[in-house]
Design a protein around this nucleic acid. Structure first.
Lengths: 331, 331
DNA sequence: TTGAAAGCGCTAACAG
DNA sequence: CTGTTAGCGCTTTCAA
C-alpha cells in the first residue's frame, strides 16, 4: 500500500498553472460564466490527472458548516428505528448531508454523552428519537449553539417533532375491538416517560371510557418481546380477559406466545392486537391486527422538516402522520 | 434561540489569562506533570465558565486524523447487518472513533458513490459489507490514500476480512440432514457473486457429493423472503424433494410459507433449513433449524482488526468465526 | 477573468 | 513551566 502524500488544491493549481483561487472556483461552480473555458478545462484536467478530491474537513472548517446531521436513536437493530433512519438518510443523501447514526442503546446516560459529542462534532442538526425524557440541559446547550433538533416518533416539549397520531390510532383500534364484542380488555403499555407510549395508552383509555367500560388491567412493559410475554403471563394468571392490547407489535407477539403456552388459541380464546406494523409481522402466525406507523416516511419528513427550518421557514412545530388500521386475524 | 457566537480556544485563553498553547495542553493532557496545578485549574475554570467544547473539525484538520470510520453496508434495516453495525459501533465508541453508517441500498452504484464520499470525508477506515463484487478501482483509490478497508461477512480478494466459516457450517448442516435420512435435497442459494452465498453453496455441494448423492435442484435467490418463497414454489412444482435448504433464514421462512400454502406440513412432509440465526426466528413457527452466525461479534472483531492494523500489527488477513448448528423442528 | 492574502480553530515545534 | 508562531487545506474578500 504505497500511501501517497495527499493531493491538495495547491497541487492542482500548480499542475494547471493557475492559482488556488481559480481551482476553488471551478470546484464550487463560482465564477461560472466569467471564466475562460480554457482555464476551466485545464483545471479539470489537472484534477482528473491527480485524482484530486477536495478534503471535506478543510472545507468544513473554512465554511463553518459541516453539512452533517446526526440520528440519535435507542437501538439501530430495532427494525422500526432502522427503517426510520433509512428514511432520514435518503433525504439527507439527496440534500448533500452526511449522516451520523448514534445508538444510545436505551441508555439515557449514553444519550447525554452523544449529545455532547455531537456538539463537538458541530453537526448542523439532530434527528432525535429519545430514550425517555431527554436531558434538558444537554439539549439547551445544543440549541444555544444553533444546532437544530427535530424529534421523531415522540414529542418533547418545546421541540419540533414528527410523529404518528398515536392517540387516534389507538382509539380507533380499541373501538374496533369493542365493536367485535370484546369487553374485558387488558392493556400492556410502554414506558410512561415515552410520549409514544402514553399517547397510545390514553387513546385506549378514552375509547374504553367512552364505552362505559373499565380496562381489565393495565401493565407496563418496555416495548420488548420479553416484556410482552411476561406481562401477558401476569395478566392471564390474575384477570379474566377476552383480549390483550399491546402498545407495540413486539410485545403483542410476546403476548401471543404466552397465551399459546397456556393452551389458549388466538383469536378463538383471546384476542391480541399490536401497534407499529413492523415488517417481521409477515412471518408471524396468526396475522396480527395492528396499526400501521409509516416509519420510513416519518424519517423522511423529519429530515425535510429540519431542512425547511434551516431555510428559515417558520414551519409547523409538530407534524402528525396518519395511522392506518391493519386487519389481521388475531382478534 | 439566541445563537451565540461560537466560543474558541482563544476565548478560553483570554479568560484564563494564558496562551492558547496552554489551553491546548490541558485539553490534550500533554504537559501533564510539568504544569502548575494552579494554571491548569484556571484553564479548567474558564472552560467551564464559557462552556467551551473543542471544535472537532479544526482538530481534525490540524492533526490530519479524523478518528472516523465508516460502515458501508447493503441495508441497515436488515437486522443481521444492523446487529453487526452495533458491534462495530461499540468498539469504535470505546476507542474514541465516530462511526458513519452508509447504506448502499443493495446498489453497486450507490456503493461506489459512497466509496468516493468516504474518500473525501477522509475516514480512517471502512468496515465494508459489499453488495457483490465491489468496485476494484474505487477501492484502490482509497487504499492508495491510506484508508484501510476491512471486509465483514464476506471475503474480497486482497482485503482483510472477518467472516463466519460458511462453508464448514453449511457442510455440517447438510450432514445433519443426511443423517436424518433426507436425500432429495434442493438448495436455494444466494447471489453467486457474494462469497457468503457461494461458500454456503459449496459446503452443501461438498457434503452431498461426499454422500454419493446429487442435489435435487439448485436455484438462486437474493436473500429476501420473497425470493425464498418464489424459489420454493418453483422447486415444489417441478422436483420431488424431501427437504429444502436455503442460504439464509429469510429465504427459509419464505420456503416454509410456500410449502404450507401447498398443504405441506413442515417438517412432516418436507424439511427446511436456514442460515444466520437471526433474532426474529424467535417469532416463527416451526422453529427453524439453522446455523448461528455471530453478527455482533463479527462487527466487534472487524473493528478490532482495523485498530490492530492501524497499530502496524501485521495481523492475520482473514479471521474465520465459528458457526454453530441450531436444532429447531423444521427438519 | 484571475490572483494574493487573510483566516476558519486547532496543535506542535521551537524558544525562552 | 509557558508562550510565539507556523501551518493543516480550503474559501473568500479585495484588488488588479
Amino acid at each position: 500500500m504505497p500511501e501517497d502524500r495527499r493531493v491538495t488544491i495547491r497541487d492542482v493549481a500548480r499542475k494547471a498553472g493557475v492559482s488556488v483561487t481559480t481551482v476553488s472556483r471551478v470546484l464550487n461552480g463560482n465564477g461560472a460564466g466569467h471564466m475562460r473555458p480554457e482555464t476551466e478545462a485545464r483545471v479539470l484536467a489537472a484534477i482528473e490527472a491527480l485524482d484530486y478530491v477536495p478534503i471535506r474537513v478543510a472545507q468544513r472548517l473554512r465554511k463553518q458548516k459541516t453539512r452533517v446531521v446526526a440520528i440519535l436513536l435507542p437501538d439501530i437493530s430495532n427494525p422500526f428505528f432502522s427503517l426510520l433512519a433509512r428514511g432520514v438518510g435518503s433525504v439527507a443523501f439527496e440534500e448533500g448531508y452526511s449522516t451520523l447514526i448514534c445508538d444510545s442503546n436505551h441508555s439515557v446516560e449514553k444519550e447525554s454523552r452523544y449529545l455532547e459529542i455531537l456538539l463537538a462534532e458541530q453537526v448542523e442538526g439532530i434527528i432525535f428519537i429519545s430514550v425517555g425524557q431527554p436531558n434538558r440541559d444537554g439539549l439547551k446547550r445544543l440549541l444555544r449553539r444553533g444546532i437544530d433538533v427535530v424529534v421523531a416518533d415522540r414529542s418533547v416539549r418545546g421541540l419540533p417533532s414528527v410523529e404518528a397520531d398515536n392517540k387516534s390510532g389507538s382509539y380507533q383500534l380499541t373501538r374496533h375491538l369493542l365493536q367485535k364484542g370484546y369487553h374485558d380488555i387488558a392493556y400492556i403499555a410502554g414506558p410512561p416517560e415515552v410520549s409514544t407510549a402514553s399517547d397510545r395508552l390514553s387513546g385506549f383509555s378514552a375509547a374504553i371510557e367512552n364505552a362505559g367500560l373499565k380496562p381489565a388491567a393495565v401493565l407496563y412493559g418496555n416495548f420488548t418481546y420479553k416484556s410482552g410475554y411476561e406481562c401477558a403471563q401476569e395478566i392471564l394468571r390474575s384477570s379474566r380477559v377476552d383480549a390483550i392490547m399491546a402498545a407495540n407489535d413486539l410485545m403483542a407477539i410476546g403476548a401471543i406466545r404466552a397465551a399459546e403456552e397456556l393452551g389458549l388459541n388466538v383469536p378463538r380464546d383471546i384476542g391480541v392486537t399490536g401497534f407499529d406494523h413492523i415488517s417481521l409481522l409477515e412471518f408471524v402466525q396468526p396475522r396480527l391486527t395492528t396499526v400501521h406507523i409509516p416509519a420510513y416516511e416519518m424519517g423522511k419528513k423529519a429530515m425535510k422538516l429540519f431542512i425547511q427550518r434551516g431555510k428559515g421557514r417558520v414551519s409547523k412545530k409538530k407534524i402528525l402522520l396518519e395511522t392506518k388500521l391493519i386487519y389481521g386475524d388475531s382478534c
